[in-house]
């Protein structure tokens, strides 16, 4: 399963992987550089989709489909809805350039540097074919692992979601509207009754 071989010899899978990787990278760069917020959101969809393709090529099918469902599906749609429902600038604008962009670039590059050096260090001398070596990516393997070793954290996440749901309702539910005037909205008698 683990074989050492020359880096030069490539296969179709590797070439596809590199191409999709470049596509993802390009889309990610465009996401943070384009001057149109809606375009940025759409480039983000491409980047996230490209990542799903990378996962698929690494034989992590379950993660790939989760990526498509959650990120390409839910998160990107949420972003676009956010743009539609707020007064975000949807045309071409220069307002998107934040004063913090150099700091953000440094943080991004540093994070990338750590990851690249760590993973590069890990697989520098070994060549492994993910399709043969890793069977962890199948839905079955992930499911088994999830419900065998990670059952407690998994169930707890549902508690977390429940708490978040209740919290969202607490913060947003209105039984009394904001523009009601106190004097008109509720008769005084009712108010004193409630206080007692």
């Amino acid at each position: 399963m683990t074989t050492t071989r020359a880096l030069g010899s490539t296969t179709g899978v590797e070439i596809t992987f590199i191409l999709i990787g470049l596509l993802t990278f390009g889309a990610a760069v465009l996401t943070v550089t384009v001057r149109n917020l809606v375009h940025a959101a759409l480039w983000l969809v491409v980047a996230l989709g490209g990542l799903a393709g990378c996962y698929l090529l690494l034989a992590a099918e379950f993660v790939a489909w989760v990526q498509v469902l959650i990120y390409v599906g839910a998160v990107a749609v949420l972003l676009l809805f956010g743009l539609m429902l707020t007064r975000a600038p949807i045309g071409r604008t220069t307002e998107l350039d934040s004063g913090n962009r150099w700091a953000a670039a440094v943080v991004g590059l540093a994070t990338a540097g750590v990851l690249v050096s760590v993973i590069g260090d890990a697989v520098r001398t070994t060549w492994f074919d993910p399709r043969q070596a890793v069977v962890n990516g199948t839905a079955k393997a992930v499911g088994t692992s999830l419900f065998r070793y990670w059952v407690l954290p998994f169930e707890l996440l549902s508690v977390l979601l429940l708490a978040a749901l209740v919290g969202a309702i607490v913060l947003s539910r209105r039984d009394v509207s904001d523009d009601v005037d106190a004097a008109e909205g509720t008769p005084r008698a009712q108010a004193t009754e409630a206080e007692a």
């Binding site: 607490v170 913060l171 947003s172 539910r173 209105r174 039984d175 009394v176 509207s177 904001d178 523009d179 009601v180 005037d181 106190a182 909205g185 509720t186 005084r188 009712q190 108010a191 009754e193 409630a194 206080e195």
Partner: peptide
């Protein structure tokens, strides 16, 4: 009384008065 009302608004007073 109601987390969603704007602080200082009439709605806040109404929610208080309604005993929420």
């Amino acid at each position: 009384a109601q987390g969603a009302t704007t602080p200082g608004s009439g709605g806040e007073r109404a929610a208080d008065a309604a005993g929420l």
